[in-house]
């Protein structure tokens, strides 16, 4: 049952990721990317990482994609204004990505299949993650707050009308 769910979600994620690249309209690309993120969140649930699945939906599909949608609508981009690469360069892009995939998958071939420990049910639970986050990773957590502050100041400064 889980295997079928994995395959369905994986195929769904791959197809919608391909549609992100190949659709002409930027708004449709964004909506397909939201679908991809939902599929990836489903994979997180299959891995018993419920907290990250919810955070993935809230942060990526909720916040970041809405930001993208706002920018696309603000700049009034649509199918007509979409720039195109020449067929040759598109072909080169596909071939380059395909070769990279072959290299990545080929490097997998010699690897041993991992022996799996008995699965504890609570690795991805929020209480467990909170223990690790606020004990072992407290300093990075605080530093990421400074990062957010810097990003916020930077975005506001760039967005100002008259930078002199």
């Amino acid at each position: 049952m889980t295997v079928y769910l994995f395959i369905i979600l994986g195929v769904f994620a791959i197809l919608s990721a391909l549609m992100v690249v190949f659709t002409k309209n930027p708004i449709h690309s964004i909506l397909y990317l939201v679908l991809t993120f939902f599929a990836i969140a489903g994979e997180y649930v299959l891995l018993n990482a419920q907290f990250l699945a919810i955070v993935n939906i809230i942060v990526y599909a909720g916040a970041i994609m809405v930001l993208f949608l706002f920018v696309v609508m603000l700049l009034n981009l649509n199918k007509e204004t979409e720039p195109h690469k020449s067929i040759l360069r598109q072909l080169i892009a596909v071939i380059a990505a395909g070769i990279l995939l072959i290299v990545l998958v080929g490097s997998l071939k010699g690897a041993d299949t991992m022996t799996i420990k008995p699965f504890a049910q609570n690795t991805g639970y929020i209480e467990n993650l909170g223990q690790v986050l606020f004990k072992d990773f407290l300093l990075p957590f605080e530093v990421s707050a400074i990062l957010f502050l810097a990003a916020m100041v930077g975005a506001v400064m760039l967005g100002k009308k008259d930078i002199k």
């Binding site: 994620a13 791959i14 990721a17 391909l18 992100v20 690249v21 930027p26 690309s29 964004i30 990317l33 991809t36 990836i40 993208f68 920018v71 696309v72 981009l77 979409e82 720039p83 195109h84 690469k85 360069r89 598109q90 080169i92 892009a93 596909v94 380059a96 990505a97 395909g98 990279l100 995939l101 990545l104 998958v105 997998l108």
Partner: peptide, 23 residues
């Protein structure tokens, strides 16, 4: 790996900077 390569392809394939960000 497949998803990563689709992202790489998107960066090389498109000219719109927003789509490149999404990739």
């Amino acid at each position: 790996s497949i998803l990563f390569c689709i992202g790489v392809m998107g960066v090389l394939f498109r000219r719109n900077a927003i789509i490149i960000f999404m990739s």
